[in-house]
Deep mutational scan, measured.
Amino acid sequence: WKITIYDQENFQGKRMEFTSSCPNVSERSFDNVRSLKVESGAWIGYEHTSFCGQQFILERGEYPRWDAWSGSNAYHIERLMSFRPICSA
Rank of each mutant, 00 (worst) to 15 (best):
W1G: 14
W1V: 12
K2W: 03
T4A: 07
T4P: 05
I5Q: 00
Y6F: 11
D7Q: 08
D7T: 08
E9D: 06
E9A: 09
N10Q: 09
F11A: 02
Q12W: 04
Q12K: 12
K14V: 05
R15V: 10
M16P: 03
M16Q: 09
F18L: 14
F18N: 02
T19M: 06
T19W: 08
S20H: 11
S21V: 05
S21Q: 09
C22E: 07
P23D: 11
P23C: 07
N24A: 06
N24M: 03
V25I: 12
S26K: 10
E27M: 07
E27V: 06
S29M: 07
S29W: 05
D31G: 11
V33K: 02
R34L: 07
S35K: 03
S35F: 03
L36K: 03
L36A: 15
L36W: 02
K37M: 07
K37G: 00
V38N: 00
V38T: 01
E39G: 08
E39N: 10
G41S: 03
G41Q: 03
A42H: 12
W43D: 02
W43P: 00
I44A: 11
G45V: 07
G45M: 11
E47S: 13
H48G: 13
H48A: 09
S50A: 11
F51W: 05
F51T: 02
C52M: 15
C52V: 13
G53Q: 00
G53R: 01
Q54M: 14
Q55K: 11
Q55M: 06
F56H: 05
F56W: 13
I57G: 04
I57C: 09
L58G: 01
L58D: 03
E59F: 04
E59V: 12
R60M: 13
G61V: 01
Y63E: 00
Y63N: 04
Y63C: 05
Y63D: 01
Y63W: 03
P64L: 03
R65L: 05
W66G: 11
D67F: 05
A68V: 08
S70K: 14
G71S: 14
S72K: 14
Y75R: 14
H76S: 12
H76P: 11
H76K: 14
I77T: 09
I77L: 13
R79Y: 13
L80Q: 03
M81Y: 04
M81W: 04
M81E: 06
S82F: 00
S82A: 04
S82K: 02
F83N: 05
F83W: 03
F83H: 02
R84V: 05
P85V: 06
P85Q: 06
P85I: 04
I86V: 15
S88C: 08
S88H: 13
